[in-house]
Nucleic acid binder design. Structure first.
Lengths: 327, 327
DNA sequence: TTGTAAGCGTTATCAC
DNA sequence: GTGATAACGCTTACAA
């Protein structure tokens, strides 16, 4: 493979100039016009490509960033991967993708691997609360503030929760419920509840919640819902689910119970997941601004201003009707 | 960043051995027991990590592979990315992800970038029929045979088409239709039609088709369906759609037309896409074995046997009921 | 302004 | 079996 790959030396010989001159031309440093033309011609003629490895070895700049995610099969993660990759590409960066399955040890191993591969930075959506991040390598965290010196980017979960409550009340609900299935480890997404609850209380609306961890059988949710079924319909008339996935599952459970959505209960999810990536929403939802989240991460990681980096960046969310509310 | 990173030289000094000895220990080459222990202790003490860039520079082995995809937002692509990444990780390889938006020039640019970054190989799902692949860098293609010397991996699309027809006939259909929206550029997926049609003909079943390119407005499909609506129901009683996405769109159109699925028409898609990645199918479908496809690609790319590489590897598909058929 | 040469952290080839 | 030493392709002082 490298056998046939021309090097700067070859270019220098072909163009009849010195090695250093070639390097300067490649890197856009000032050089005599006639020399530049000769070098550029030789580059084209031999089809020269810089060897990023050699460059990285020498100058500690690899134009590569690593994205660490639990997986890429879930639409939210897929969206992040897509847009982070695009944001990086816009800056001529390549993306190394590491998948962890949310296992703390794997997350840690990924960080070590990144160190080996000398990426210029890491964007990570991780759960390991004790993740060791070697200093010197820029790290931006998604949805999780796990160290004050590591900038975290997330949606404005708190306001998202508030918006959900506000919307449900605006749509005529009087008795609200919050359902949550998620990681037992704390994260920014937990604020969805806080915002929702806060608004309920400030408006004096009835509030109830079910807080579960990942892995809880659906039966538990089913029971919760079943107990609230009344002859006329349902004792709660507005439900906020912490994710679209949960909202979708709840929708199915309610359908099985002959509770009509949105007539008997109105439902709002969170995330803004679309079928097949772009074919419409599963439910009314608080949509996360995924492209902007991605761009914020990349910008925070690479656009080195001298400015102090905010420890938390919250991007505004947006209410998206999707058929499970009466609007 | 590198300031604090210990190098082999540091290890050698710490352990009081020569540089070459350290290298041998790191690479598992035979070395005196006492030396090995000393080196290993030093490695642990200083927290040494190999610099893959330096290694790559020297030995042209980077333990990195590139995956080139149109995007990662669509569930099929997301599944491929997920499983290719896992298959690579199992072999201690990292994955560089390049996204092209199916644009031929971008695809070509990605191939060039990979060359710069000296990946050990490329797995690509590309459309550019004239994609130039520099020799010397292993390339495995997904769903597209575009050069005889480049191994292609895909599902057994032909048999998938046959299975769809067979299943529809088995379920009582007598008048079958094939619907297709896809790239105008030829690919392995086109064989879905061939298999479907061949089985229809061999069984003497009525066959009809609609062959469209990406970007065609839904109205065209809608018109096609509308024309086949009869008083009693629908003039076709079995429909095979070339993708689950199309099957889902057709399902919606039929619902709008008050044609009942699966009562009036039975519907089979292709791909095996699940909602939220793992929450059940959109429709009855011919499911692609995505983990196996990924593993096949990686194996073909990295497991260098002296064996000749097959120019086409077709993996078996599986029929998956999903509510749009009467089984 | 241009050319020269010293590394960057590894691996691999030799003498010892 | 072990330890110098020369590459690998590039950047960057520094000298011409």
């Amino acid at each position: 493979m490298k056998k046939n790959m021309p090097t700067m030396k070859d270019i220098a010989k072909e163009a009849g100039v010195a090695l250093g001159t070639v390097s300067k031309v490649i890197n856009g440093l000032p050089v005599g016009e006639s020399y530049r033309l000769r070098v550029e011609a030789a580059v084209k003629k031999l089809g020269y490509q810089v060897n990023q490895y050699a460059r990285g070895l020498r100058s500690d700049k690899t134009y590569t960033a690593a994205l660490i995610l639990p997986g890429v099969n879930h639409p939210y993660f897929a969206g992040l991967a897509q847009h982070v990759c695009e944001s990086l590409a816009r800056r001529q960066y390549r993306m190394l993708l590491y998948l962890t399955g949310s296992q703390p040890e794997v997350e840690q191993a990924c960080v070590h691997m990144v160190r080996q591969n000398k990426a210029d930075g890491i964007i990570g959506l991780t759960y390991n609360p004790e993740l060791e991040v070697p200093e010197g390598i820029p790290f931006v965290s998604i949805d999780r503030c796990f160290r004050p010196d590591i900038p975290c980017v997330s949606s404005d979960n708190y306001n998202g929760g508030r918006m959900a409550a506000e919307k449900l009340l605006e749509l005529g609900c009087t008795s609200l419920g919050f359902l949550r299935v998620g990681s037992p480890l704390p994260g920014e997404a937990d604020k969805r509840r806080d915002g929702f609850k806060a608004l309920c209380e400030s408006r004096g609306a009835a509030y109830e919640e079910l807080w579960l961890n990942d892995g809880t059988p659906l039966d538990v949710i089913s029971d919760f819902l079943q107990k609230r079924k009344t002859e006329a319909g349902f004792s709660l008339d507005g439900l906020f689910c912490c994710t679209d996935l949960l909202a979708w599952q709840v929708q199915n459970l309610l359908a099985q119970m002959d509770v009509d959505v949105p007539r008997d209960v109105q439902l709002i999810g969170f995330d803004g997941i679309q079928r097949f990536g772009d074919q419409g929403y599963y439910c009314s939802t608080i949509a996360q601004p995924i492209p902007q989240l991605a761009e914020a991460c990349v910008s925070l990681l690479l656009d080195k201003g001298d400015a102090m980096k905010p420890s938390l960046t919250c991007l505004p969310v947006r209410y998206q009707p999707g058929g499970t509310t009466r609007d």
